[in-house]
Amino acid sequence: MLELRPNCECCNRDLPPESPDAMICTFECTFCADCVEHALGGVCPNCGGNFSPRPIRPAAALARHPAGTRRVFNPDGCQMQEASA
C-alpha cells in the first residue's frame, strides 16, 4: 500500500492525499508536479527514475488506511537538473 507522503521533497509544498499534483517514482519519492517539471526535468533525483501521478485513495479506504505523516524535505536534491544542464 502506498504511504501517501504529505509533502513535496523539493519545495515542501503540502500534498494532501487527494492532491492531483502529487507525483511519485517507483520508490514513492514524492514531489509536486511543478517541481517534477521545472526543477527535476521529470527525473527523480534520488533514484534516477521517472514519475507518475500518485493515485488518489478513496475516502472510505483513507479512513481505514490513513495517509503517511512523515515529511521528507531535501531541497539540495532539487539542484540535480540544474547542475547537469
Rank of each mutant, 00 (worst) to 15 (best):
M80E: 13
A22D: 00
P20E: 12
A59N: 05
M80Q: 13
N46K: 08
C78A: 14
S19P: 03
C44H: 02
R5C: 12
Q81F: 11
R5N: 06
R54Q: 06
C10T: 12
P53N: 09
S19H: 03
H38C: 04
R5P: 05
C32H: 06
S84W: 13
H38W: 14
C44T: 04
L15A: 01
G42H: 08
E28H: 06
S84Y: 09
G42I: 08
P16H: 05
E37Y: 14
A22Q: 00
P17N: 06
R54S: 05
C25T: 10
C78T: 12
D76I: 11
A83K: 14
G41N: 10
S52L: 09
M1L: 15
L2R: 09
A33Q: 14
G77D: 09
G77S: 07
P6V: 11
C78E: 07
E37M: 11
E18G: 04
P55C: 07
A33E: 15
G41I: 02
V36G: 02
A61D: 15
H38N: 14
D34G: 04
A22T: 01
C44W: 07
R70S: 08
L62R: 15
Q81M: 05
P53Y: 08
V36K: 10
P58S: 05
V72N: 07
E18V: 01
E18Y: 15
A85P: 03
F51N: 02
G42L: 01
R71E: 11
A60S: 13
N12Y: 07
E37P: 03
C11I: 04
A60N: 13
P17G: 06
C47T: 13
L4P: 02
N12V: 00
S19Q: 01
A67C: 08
S19T: 02
R70L: 15
P45L: 01
N74K: 13
P58H: 11
P55R: 00
P45K: 01
M23Q: 12
R54D: 02
C8V: 11
E37W: 12
C25G: 01
A60P: 06
F73M: 07
C32I: 03
L4E: 12
N12M: 00
Q81C: 02
C10Y: 09
T30R: 02
A60C: 08
A83Q: 13
P53G: 08
M23A: 07
A67G: 12
R57P: 03
R57I: 08
P20L: 09
M80D: 11
C8T: 08
R54V: 09
C10L: 10
M1Q: 08
R71M: 03
I24E: 01
G42F: 02
G42S: 04
Q81N: 11
A59Q: 10
A63I: 12
C44M: 09
M80H: 13
E28I: 13
S52D: 04
P20M: 08
C8A: 08
E37Q: 15
P53M: 07
N12Q: 08
A39W: 10
M1Y: 14
C11P: 06
R71N: 06
S52K: 14
D76M: 12
A39D: 11
E9S: 13
I56K: 10
E3S: 14
V43P: 03
N50A: 06
A60H: 15
G41A: 04
A33T: 12
E9P: 00
A22R: 01
P75G: 01
G42C: 04
F51Q: 00
E3Y: 13
L40H: 11
P66D: 07
P6Y: 06
A39C: 04
Q79S: 12
T26D: 07
T69C: 09
L62F: 04
